[in-house]
Simulated scan of single mutants.
Amino acid sequence: MALKLDEIRKVADRVAGSLGLDVVDVELTGSAKSCVLCVYLEKNAAGRAEMVAQVVAGSIEAEAVPERFAKGELDLNQLSWLTHEDCASFSRDFGTLLDVEDLGPDGEYTLEASSPGLDRKLTARVDFERFKGSLVKIQTFEPIANNRHWQGRLTACGQDALTLDLTAAKQNSKARKTGVSTVEIGLSNIEKAQLVPEF
């Protein structure tokens, strides 16, 4: 199924690109009899920049933007700006292509298109650069200071590594025992990473 998921991702990228969207992730969950194919989307960089410009110009009401973004505490560029119309258009076009190219999962499946959410996955260096200043949770392949699970504020992202401020979040017991306030993690050592929602 991994190979088929790669092909599905390529088709999703093609459809999303034609609609001014980017694919953040593609997941297939559930059983063989009834599975869910979920595609996480957001406006592309140009679309996000346009939405931010509209907020700054006052074309979009401040009430329509989450409070911490409206106050300037978080960067408006971090929002996905995905609309219901975007999801509907993508689902229609993508579903048709899946059928035509016979790429859909075997058996019955449900297609879902949605925003990556507040706890979105971070998979590439560009993600870490974009979400600098955010709280993140990271699991590493190899332990650092005898710990594989870290949570903190992403303060820097270089070519090969990123830095977390550990004082910004509650740490697990192993992380607390290290006695360090920052940790540098090599990008190649990151097994999983995701945002930690802040309210």
Results as ranks from 00 to 15, higher is better:
A62I: 04
E67M: 02
R9D: 11
E7S: 12
A12F: 09
T140C: 09
E50G: 00
S114P: 06
L162E: 15
L76K: 03
A64F: 13
G30Q: 07
K170F: 10
S173L: 14
G58K: 04
T96G: 06
G179S: 11
Q54L: 02
D86N: 01
C87H: 03
T29R: 13
T182Q: 11
L164I: 14
T123E: 10
K170W: 11
A57M: 06
A145Q: 13
V56Y: 12
L135F: 15
K121T: 15
D25R: 10
S91R: 08
Q78K: 01
G30N: 07
D165C: 13
S134Y: 01
T163F: 14
P66V: 00
I60E: 07
G117V: 13
G72E: 07
Q139D: 06
L166G: 12
A2P: 08
P116V: 05
R176C: 14
V180R: 08
V56I: 02
W150L: 08
P105T: 08
C157M: 07
V23N: 01
R130V: 11
L79Q: 01
A62G: 00
D25G: 05
R120P: 02
K192G: 15
S91I: 01
C38K: 12
K71S: 12
V100H: 03
N44W: 10
T140H: 03
T155F: 15
T182P: 02
F199V: 09
